[in-house]
Design a protein around this nucleic acid. Structure first.
Lengths: 335, 335
DNA sequence: CTTTATGTTTAAATCGTTTGCGTAACTAAA
DNA sequence: TTTAGTTACGCAAACGATTTAAACATAAAG
């Protein structure tokens, strides 16, 4: 079935293209009778305006991009859910791009989005990302950008995060109170300010309780599952920490695997606590003490900020920096 | 910074728009010297072709849509990962739409994609979907459609699934061999052929072992978590099955919750087996016997079929019906 | 010194919309 | 009847690209 355009409708009805267009857009200039005829035929032939022609003419594509490290992850998939909901509600289409924690891919994706394809961008940074020029370029181009979760303070854009410092501090203190003296920290990244905040929460708790900060107890996420496994195994064997605080869910899973393979017992030999959005954290063996982030809500709010900025042509000032509360769920892996 | 277009480049270089266009497309008609000049300036000013103008002129948007019931789910998020990988490799952009298992939303989304926004569609049907007119319309419009996992045999399109019948039969037999006599079946849908296949695998195993098929032991997924919880609770209390075979991961999680709340023990009081792509199925308490689907690969192959069809303007005939193997991982929830 | 070929560039149409402006036709007031 | 004011529509120019066909040189051939 050939595509039906304004032109075809115009020919069929012996009217000009502009009259068709105006009728369908309910323009005041057009007689109601004419409008009705046009609308009737358009419906009958199932006329659908070509979105790209419209975008070209009007500017604005009613499309946003979501750039993420990965999606096979409970946090991000919940976030997408929230993003999609708000986007759909506001008539936006959602393009998705994955960086796989790869900085160069992130830059590449960002650069290819400077051509008007999208009206705005939601982004959670790759753990490798240190240099932020690609984001500066986007901002300079006037493309609204909202960061969430994996944010950087070095970039001048609104963002939505959780109370990473506070909850990390609280979590670490929980471990200390439970008797841990040698707490390892599995870090998301060496660069991102979210990682820094989580780390500072951790170190501030140590300090408060007169525990030394030991660099050897810090391990950073890589983008290889195997490498992470080996790094954590090495950490446990060589440093023998009595607790592990994972600031990334996937690393907690790896810890479970390593601990299992080493025939150690959680929480007796080693306690484990992690940021996590696993629905079944409570059914893990042992159940996992976790920091639950309101992922869905983060997605919703970030998208809401973005769509508003697109609508009004600018962000509200001062730039919104939204901080939502995470929740520490104490379970058997730490007691 | 104002957007830079072919027209601007043309003015700057005192050349015609067509020459610029041809230079950038490395057309044989243009002198190398001219090309070099054009390319140099284009790079310097970071010229990015407007994708919508191109789409309008050339037809084809280099964009595909993925329509899914949900994304906060290990199977679908892994599938997206595979989809995005192949799409990115072939220069396609990926739009994502969620139906939340809602038939009307699915129809709405499908209808809105008939306007040339996308070159093709990947889809996994909502559990509510029975009527398939919206898909017929897409096919009639000539928009390539590939279904994966949640497919229907009533629709004439390529699809990628797993060996649902065989693995379900195998799984059910495993339960029977382990001593179960009253096996409940948690179904994905009353309509989809994938659900039917899983169900047939289940019932054929029962038959083979001379067990009766009891309608009261069949429960279907709804799109409300609470409703699912209540339905399963009712099932367990009223029918007292000695095993549950969940054909949907999320229902297995609910089973764990219900069983826990009822203070029953898995596998002693009731065995549990489920389709699932949880990375940590083995760390559940008790570890979950699960059918693992190659979700990532399903996504990859479906996308590969789709992009080829887009490239060649038609699907390979006969329509590809790819069946990948799932894997039954026996763990402690059934032994 | 035309004709033909060859290499290089451009004008103009086109894709499907939206929209500023112009202009009939009709009505109402002068 | 003239004038002014509606009402209802069409023309044509954008938007930013690609592409067909044609124009212009210049060089080789007859």
């Amino acid at each position: 079935m050939a595509d039906i355009t304004l032109k075809k409708l115009a020919e069929l009805l012996n009217l000009s293209i502009s009259t068709i267009s105006r009728s369908l857009n309910d323009d005041y200039q057009i007689n109601q009778t004419t409008k009705d005829k046009v609308i009737a035929l358009a419906k009958e032939l199932n006329y659908q305006p070509n979105p790209y022609a419209g975008s070209l003419r009007k500017k604005g594509s009613k499309t946003i991009a979501v750039i993420l490290p990965e999606v096979a992850n409970n946090f991000f998939s919940l976030a997408i859910d929230g993003i999609e909901e708000v986007a759909q509600k506001n008539g936006f289409h959602v393009l998705i791009y994955l960086t796989h924690e790869n900085y160069l891919k992130e830059v590449d994706i960002a650069n290819h989005l400077m051509n008007g394809r999208v009206d705005g961008i939601l982004m959670s940074l790759s753990s490798e990302t240190n240099n932020l020029e690609h984001l500066d370029k986007l901002i300079e181009k006037g493309i609204p950008l909202v960061l969430f979760d994996r944010v950087s303070d070095k970039i001048n854009s609104p963002h939505v995060t959780t109370d990473d410092f506070e909850v990390s501090q609280k979590a670490t203190e929980h471990l200390i109170t439970a008797g841990s003296k040698k707490i390892a920290f599995l870090s998301l990244s060496r660069y991102l300010s979210i990682a820094e905040k989580r780390f500072k929460g951790y170190s501030s708790a140590l300090k408060k309780h007169d525990l030394d900060l030991d660099e050897k107890l810090i391990v950073s996420l890589t983008n290889s599952l195997e490498e992470n496994y080996e790094n954590i195994k090495k950490l446990i064997i060589e440093e023998k920490p009595d607790a592990i605080f994972a600031s990334v869910e996937s690393l907690a899973m790896t810890v479970y695997e390593v601990v299992n393979d080493l025939k150690l017992k959680i929480p007796n030999d080693i306690k484990v606590l992690s940021f996590s959005n696993l629905r079944i954290a409570s059914f893990l063996a042992p159940s996992l003490t976790s920091i639950n982030q309101p992922a869905f809500e983060i997605g919703r709010q970030a998208t809401s900020i973005l769509t508003r900025a697109i609508k009004y042509g600018k962000f509200e000032t001062p730039l919104e920096k939204i901080i939502l509360k995470s929740e520490l769920q104490i379970r058997n892996s730490t007691v």
